[in-house]
Design a binder for these strands. Structure first.
Length: 782
DNA sequence: TAGTAAGGGACGCGTCTTTG
DNA sequence: CAAAGACGCGTCCCTTACTA
């Protein structure tokens, strides 16, 4: 059967009739719908379905009842409805369920439709078939209550008061309890007059209580949840309060009522989810406009709107809403631009945003100042908020708690809010019940404020008893301790965070996206810090290494320098020795030639061994050539250089250097040059250099054997060839094989006078030759 | 000078619960 | 039913340090 709800739309609901007489009531079809809902639940209950309703279903069901009462207050219903219709008045009261939209003319643009039953066509279930079982169970329970109350002759407004369901009639027909009170119309006269004594204490299933509490946490009121789950309100209240430490509907109600607050909170959530969240001021303005539009009398000053304290309480009661910085301005700080905020599209909004705090400035202003209201009501924001109710299919759909919400969002193209000055940040977190955390920007804040916000929590955690002033001092000290870079980094981090968050779009996979960006962002920061630290460490290491290298290079330079100097000295000396040798050899040949020419052959015939063709050659070793005899130090150096590694032995530093260089480098490089430098003369000069470089040769030179060699047996006796040892009493004259005779005049060295004369003559000639070799020319050549 | 941060105290008022 | 107590809400104000 189809029922029309003229006041909310033309949605059709196929609900079986419950009582034929209900259709005869033409007074209020909303009540009909609700009754039909109840009857539907009865019908489902008869089918034996007994599953407990889930949270969302309960919310929707309660909405179906309370939405009617929003439009038609209980008082009106009581006046116009028959007792049967009054069954729905119990759900009235200020504790309206969540996900309720206000009257259509004041709808915030959030539409939720339920396939099950809703007087409003704009309420939509995401999965119409999914919650059926739960709905049916709830309907069943409600119907049971209804039937029970009807059997007891009571109003349905009292159903659910007793979990036992067997509360005796109070005899107060039509008397309602405080449950009937509405937030806008308190009914003090409807206060309960008497409470029945508690009998046997009923012990409820903890799981059931927990489930009921979960429903309450989800947004259902304690009273309605108690009704749905057949739990005494007091028991549920205590349990819920004990379990969650949450406030119960006690004390003064919010000025807007729970329903309107929830509606506005939902609207803020939807807007923020679309990146169109409102600032604190805008939120306050929203409430102000709502109050003005609804002509709701509040205690708010001047009847304008709430103050910042209210906003704080509002956030406290809606933990899904959080205040966050103005990331856009942080972005401006990040880029270091002092550009002004984009010009608002509407001047009125600019006036609004330039307006000081609403509450704190009010007492300084004229309470009857109307222009502010004009500004507010004429603002495009107000126009947006007060636009036609109902869904707009063009707008994106949100799935909040499996309830599709079609928000009426500001058009981004014509959005009135400046995108940079008050960009709203949408964050998300996988909170409990998959709640979406919406964070509202509060506009520009300073770096210190950001730092304060991030730090004070930790300080407060460490010092729970610290007052705000103390915390502020601590934060300030920490802030002072930070250097400029860290302050900037803090700001940049916040800016980056805001940048990332601002770019997040939560319409599809926003949660994961935001988390992903968060992770990327923090990794980026961490990587930057690590790189910075590594760079610093590298710089320090480089400095240390540079200092060490400088010392090493100095030492190495000295080593190379000494080595090169040594090599040069040795090379020069080697060349000098070679020149001297060649000169001596040439002089000796010239002298021989000159002697041969002047003295004739006879002279040499007397020497025996020196005759013939090789008479011009005399053993070089016989020459007492001083230049050929290096000084002891030089000779020692030559001896050490001879083996090839003498240099290493000479210089420990060079040895260590060569050890550092590796195996082949020094020998093939430096030492190779050294060896090559000395080997080349050996190759060129043949045995001369070998004799010069060989220790035996040095010893032979030092020993200065007699210049007479083998007695003219060879043209040139090898210089390394040792002369035959003279017998102990042999004649010292070269070539004389006779033994020396004992004679004190020639010291027993000669065998005869002839040998004495011959030897002396030979010695004299050699001395002459030696004198000739040491002419000034030869010294000049040196 | 105004505004920001977060928390809390004081006060008045209203609502809800409990008790007799 | 009345009253008392408990409790919540809104407002004002305060704290310190900093920023625009």
């Amino acid at each position: 059967q189809t029922f029309h709800t003229p006041s909310f739309g033309d949605e059709e609901f196929d609900i079986p009739p419950i009582n034929p007489h209900q259709h005869q009531q033409g007074g209020n079809q909303h009540v009909q719908n609700n009754m039909n809902s109840y009857q539907q639940s009865q019908d489902y209950a008869e089918n034996g379905q007994s599953m407990r309703p889930d949270v969302k279903t309960a919310v929707l069901i309660v909405y179906a009842r309370s939405a009617t009462l929003w439009k038609y207050p209980p008082s009106t219903m009581l006046q116009n409805q028959s007792p049967d219709n009054m069954v729905m008045s119990d759900s009235s009261g200020y504790q309206q369920p969540l996900y309720l939209s206000g009257p259509p003319e004041h709808s915030m643009g959030i539409s939720v439709s339920s396939s099950y039953n809703s007087p409003q066509p704009t309420y939509t279930m995401a999965s119409p078939n999914q919650p059926n079982n739960s709905q049916l169970l709830m309907m069943q329970q409600q119907q049971q209550h209804q039937q029970m109350m009807l059997n007891h002759g009571q109003s349905m407004g009292q159903y659910g008061r007793s979990p036992q369901g067997n509360s005796p009639p109070t005899g107060q027909e039509g008397t309602t309890t405080s449950e009937d009170s509405d937030d806008s119309t308190p009914h003090s006269a409807m206060m309960p007059t008497k409470y029945e004594k508690k009998g046997v204490r009923f012990t409820y299933d903890p799981a059931r209580m927990a489930e009921t509490a979960a429903v309450v946490r989800k947004g259902l009121t304690l009273r309605i949840a108690a009704e749905c789950y057949e739990v005494p309100f007091g028991t549920l209240s205590k349990h819920y309060k004990k379990a969650t430490d949450a406030r119960v509907g006690r004390g003064k109600k919010p000025e807007l009522g729970y329903k309107d607050e929830k509606d506005r909170a939902l609207y803020l959530r939807v807007c923020a989810l679309h990146g169109e969240g409102l600032t604190q001021k805008e939120t306050i303005q929203l409430m102000t406009e709502f109050v003005c539009q609804e002509k709701i009398e509040t205690r708010w000053k001047n009847g304008k709107g709430p103050g910042e304290d209210w906003f704080r309480r509002f956030l406290a009661f809606h933990p899904e809403l959080r205040i966050r910085k103005g990331e856009a301005l942080s972005l401006q700080r990040m880029v270091g631009m002092k550009r002004p905020s984009p010009e608002p599209a509407d001047n009125s909004l600019a006036k609004i945003q330039k307006k000081p705090k609403v509450q704190k400035k009010k007492k300084k202003r004229d309470p009857n100042e109307p222009q502010k209201l004009n500004i507010l009501t004429s603002s495009p924001l107000s126009q947006n908020l007060n636009s036609a109710p109902g869904i707009t299919l063009k707008h994106p759909t949100l799935n909040i708690g499996n309830i599709l919400v079609h928000p009426k969002l500001p058009d981004p193209a014509t959005s009135i809010r400046p995108r940079l000055a008050n960009v709203l940040v949408v964050l998300s977190s996988a909170a409990e019940y998959e709640e979406i955390e919406v964070r509202i920007s509060v506009g520009p804040v300073s770096a210190y404020a950001l730092f304060f916000r991030d730090t004070q929590a930790a300080i407060k955690g460490q010092n729970p008893n610290a007052s705000f002033g103390e915390v502020s001092k601590i934060v300030a000290s920490m802030w002072d301790a930070l250097d400029a870079e860290h302050k900037n980094v803090s700001v940049h981090m916040t800016c980056m965070q805001g940048l990332v968050l601002t770019q997040c779009n939560l319409r599809a996979s926003g949660l994961m996206q935001v988390n992903f960006f968060f992770i990327i962002f923090f990794f980026f920061i961490i990587i930057l810090l690590i790189i910075f630290i590594i760079i610093i460490i590298i710089i320090i290491i480089i400095i240390i290494i540079t200092n060490n290298n400088n010392n090493k290079q100095v030492n190495l330079h000295h080593a190379y320098g000494s080595l090169n100097s040594c090599l040069c000295v040795y090379k020069k000396k080697t060349e000098a020795a070679k020149k001297e040798y060649l000169k001596a050899l040439a002089a000796y040949r010239a002298s021989l030639v000159s002697k041969g020419a002047s003295e004739g052959e006879g002279m040499y015939s007397g020497y025996g061994g020196f005759g013939g063709g090789y008479s011009g050659y005399s053993p070089p070793t016989a020459l007492p050539s001083p230049p050929m005899l290096p000084p002891p130090s030089q000779q020692q150096q030559q001896q050490q250089m001879g083996p090839g590694n003498g240099m290493a032995k000479k210089s420990p530093l060079l040895s260590s250097m060569m050890t550092e260089r590796g195996n082949g480098q020094p020998q093939q490089g430096l030492m190779g040059q050294m060896q090559q430098t000395h080997l080349q003369p050996q190759v060129n000069q043949g045995g001369y250099m070998q004799q010069q470089m060989s220790p035996p040769r040095s010893e032979h030179i030092v020993s200065s054997p007699p210049p007479v060699s083998a007695g003219g047996t060879g043209p040139l006796q090898p210089q390394n060839q040792q002369p035959p040892p003279r017998p102990g009493n042999a004649c010292i004259r070269h070539g004389c094989p006779n033994a020396a005779i004992s004679n004190s005049e020639w010291e027993d060295e000669y065998c005869s006078n002839e040998c004495v004369v011959s030897h002396c003559r030979t010695t004299e000639q050699e001395q002459k030759k030696l004198r000739m070799t040491h002419t000034p020319d030869s010294f000049q050549n040196e």
